[in-house]
């Protein structure tokens, strides 16, 4: 095992920080988007569906570039945040933003699938028992899609850990500031003699991803067990 440098440790910490923040921030939006797609009959729903899923099929570099245009100093959202005194581009916030956008379709798809499996009659029963639509949302739909929300969040978390293309465009590759594990690996592989270090970080990536999947599996099993009782 190679000795990790302080910047390597920082990259690991930053990766975890970015993935957690991106997942938590995306959850409410993902839930709302999935609800709209699963239960409502909005005009232009297919277009909305398409836009939500677009980052899944676009090259992450394209997503990163579009975000750069939007959040850059001349982009209208970048302008807005700048007037509020918030700098996004080339900070760790940009890495969060990149992960949020790229991981979002995975989150929404998972929650939506879960919601679509809820029997419509349960929702109707709750309405006829006197629950308003928002009451039904929180007392029936949310708990019954708990498993799907959890699965979606795990998927998005894992995806965020590996996010590279959009991040390097919008957050840059600044060691100690915006350099996450994939970016650090990229740096090592393009440095002569960095192979050993790159391999070390790859191992960390594999371990992280594997433990996320195992923890997810274990928690889902406990979830089902609780449901069975």
């Amino acid at each position: 095992m190679p000795e990790f440098t302080p910047t390597d440790w920082q990259a690991m910490l930053l990766s975890a920080q970015v993935a957690v923040t991106a997942t938590l921030l995306a959850l409410p939006f993902g839930f709302v988007a999935a609800y709209l797609l699963a239960f409502t009959r909005l005009p232009g729903k297919s277009l909305f569906d398409g836009i939500v899923n677009l980052p899944l099929v676009l090259p992450p570099v394209v997503v990163g570039y579009l975000l750069l245009l939007l959040f850059g100093n001349h982009g209208w959202l970048g302008h807005l945040f700048k007037s509020l005194g918030i700098q996004i581009i080339f900070t760790w916030k940009a890495a969060v933003l990149a992960s949020m956008v790229v991981g979002f379709p995975l989150l929404v798809r998972s929650i939506r699938l879960g919601m679509e499996q809820i029997d419509e009659k349960l929702i109707q029963a709750s309405r006829t028992l006197g629950a308003h639509w928002y009451d039904t949302l929180f007392s029936i739909i949310l708990p019954l899609s708990g498993r799907a929300i959890f699965a979606g969040a795990t998927l998005m978390f894992a995806r965020s850990l590996g996010e590279f293309g959009a991040t390097i465009i919008i957050a840059g590759n600044i060691p100690g500031v915006t350099q996450t594990i994939p970016l650090a690996i990229y740096d090592y592989t393009s440095t002569p003699g960095g192979d050993r270090m790159a391999l070390g970080l790859c191992l960390v990536s594999v371990l992280l991803a594997l433990s996320v999947l195992l923890i997810n599996d274990g928690l889902l099993k406990r979830f089902d067990h609780k449901r069975q009782r």
Binding site: Q124, A125, R127, T128, W133, I140
Partner: peptide, 29 residues
Amino acid sequence: PPEQRRIGVVFQHAHLFPHLSVKRNLFYG
């Protein structure tokens, strides 16, 4: 809307809320 009509429905297949206990199902309305 259904919640304001106060017309109860008993469906063919009960459709109890699977995440709630019998007691919480009973007292839902």
